[in-house]
Amino acid sequence: MKVALRLAGLALAATCAAPALASPVPFLCAAPAALPALEPGTPYYDIELVPTGRVPGTRRAAGLARVNSTGSPFGVAVTSSGRYSVDLAVSFRGLVPRARDFAVWVATADLSEIHYIGVLDEAGNLKAEASWNKFLVIVTLEANGAEPGESWDGPIVFRGMSRSGRMHTMAGHGPFQAEACAKYGY
């Protein structure tokens, strides 16, 4: 956003109204301007649920898992091990109902732990929780009313990964250090 400022550096020594107690800082002073009003909630941690294309007629559906911090007396919800606890609100637009159920699962990135959440309701919605550092949201097509097993039986229709998954930069391991990425749990 302010990358241009670094180019300007000290040459732009105009002092914006300096904080009373801090040193004057050399920054470009932009004219104040109003910004659009804020809507509560943010898409920053939202998880886009991307179709696999394995099930005909699902490519045009748009899926999203909105991520909100679980209610907490502290303003941020973490487990005793420090993992974030989040509420997921899974929703779809344009998902054509089928004879079979759309089942929702959350899983660690290496699929070592998989939790069945439930099936999408008729409106294509479902609430879930998660408390892993990085996790997947997976939607599969399962037999109607089937008792869920440890993992899914049907095809994966949509999948998405928590934003924390983007932190896998490949800069610190993998190609540069010949370390298996899995060592770091993705």
Partner: peptide
């Protein structure tokens, strides 16, 4: 008890 982050490796680690 936290999940620390190593941005260089792109990983969480318990600390």
């Amino acid at each position: 008890t936290i999940q620390a982050i190593d941005h260089f490796r792109g990983e969480f680690y318990p600390h």
